[in-house]
């Protein structure tokens, strides 16, 4: 049996490739049983996107151009959400080096969400029931959250765990690119790359060393595991 090697999962977002099409949101929501909340609740800022594309405008007409930046949980190495949770529902995984959202432990203080500088966390304001037979598409690998629970991007930890179990059952190491979160898998522009940052040869590590790299709100010292690659030139960010 191959020895378990702890991983340091990381994501690279190439903003020069990203078109802002939002397929990542759809992929994520369907994989992770993220409920839709309806027009009024979205208008009030209660949509439950685990990943959303921040769209700012640059320049003035006619040289105006949008900049797209998909933002999801940055899986900080030094995460502000973790120390403030009174019950360890927001907790660091030593094994995967990501921030876990343990739904069944959450009591719903929402402090983690206040303290997340990336606004990556969303809250189940209500129980969002799906009419029959829509519940049939719910992914059984992901817990359906009830009201009063925080949730956020998990890097599709269910896929990580499944992938590791599969590799272990077959007695081999994980291959680079074998595990892909739903957003990475769907991204039509191939702007998202996922992998193990502790392996210097992995594709994600190579991209994360790019000269175009930066991290969101780097000055806060949160050590995000998501690396952004700047758009090139003064456009197309």
């Amino acid at each position: 049996m191959a020895e378990e090697r702890p991983a340091k999962w990381g994501l690279v977002v190439d903003l020069d490739r990203c078109t802002g099409c939002n397929a990542c949101i759809a992929a994520c929501s369907m994989e992770n049983n993220v409920p839709f909340v309806g027009e009024d609740e979205v208008a009030y800022g209660r949509a439950l996107y685990w990943i959303r594309t921040q769209r700012y405008w640059e320049g003035e007409y006619p040289a105006v151009t949008p900049t797209f930046q998909p933002v999801m949980c940055q899986q900080c190495g030094n995460a502000p959400c973790e120390p403030v949770c009174p019950v360890y529902a927001s907790v660091h995984s030593e094994e995967e080096q990501i921030n876990l959202a343990v739904y069944n432990r959450c009591v719903g203080t929402r402090y983690c969400a206040n303290n997340c500088p990336y606004f990556a966390r969303v809250f189940n304001w209500f129980d969002y029931e799906l009419p029959e037979p829509m519940r049939s598409y719910l992914n059984p690998d992901v817990t359906v959250r009830r009201r009063g629970v925080m949730e956020k991007c998990t890097f599709c930890v269910q896929r990580i765990v499944r992938g590791r179990q599969k590799a272990r059952a077959e007695g081999r190491e994980l291959r680079d690119g074998e595990i892909q979160p739903a957003c990475v898998q769907a991204c039509p522009a191939e702007a998202l790359v996922f992998g193990d940052l502790s392996d210097p040869e992995s594709r994600v590590s190579q991209l994360a060393r790019s000269q175009r790299r930066y991290h969101l709100l780097e000055e806060l010292g949160t050590l995000p595991r998501v690396t952004y690659l700047k758009g090139v030139g003064n456009h197309g960010g």
């Binding site: 995984s93 094994e95 876990l100 343990v102 817990t143």
Partner: peptide
């Protein structure tokens, strides 16, 4: 020896 991994929340809860 493997307890760090086996006590990780994500081992069972996600």
């Amino acid at each position: 020896n493997d307890f760090v991994r086996l006590s990780d929340c994500a081992t069972c809860h996600y």
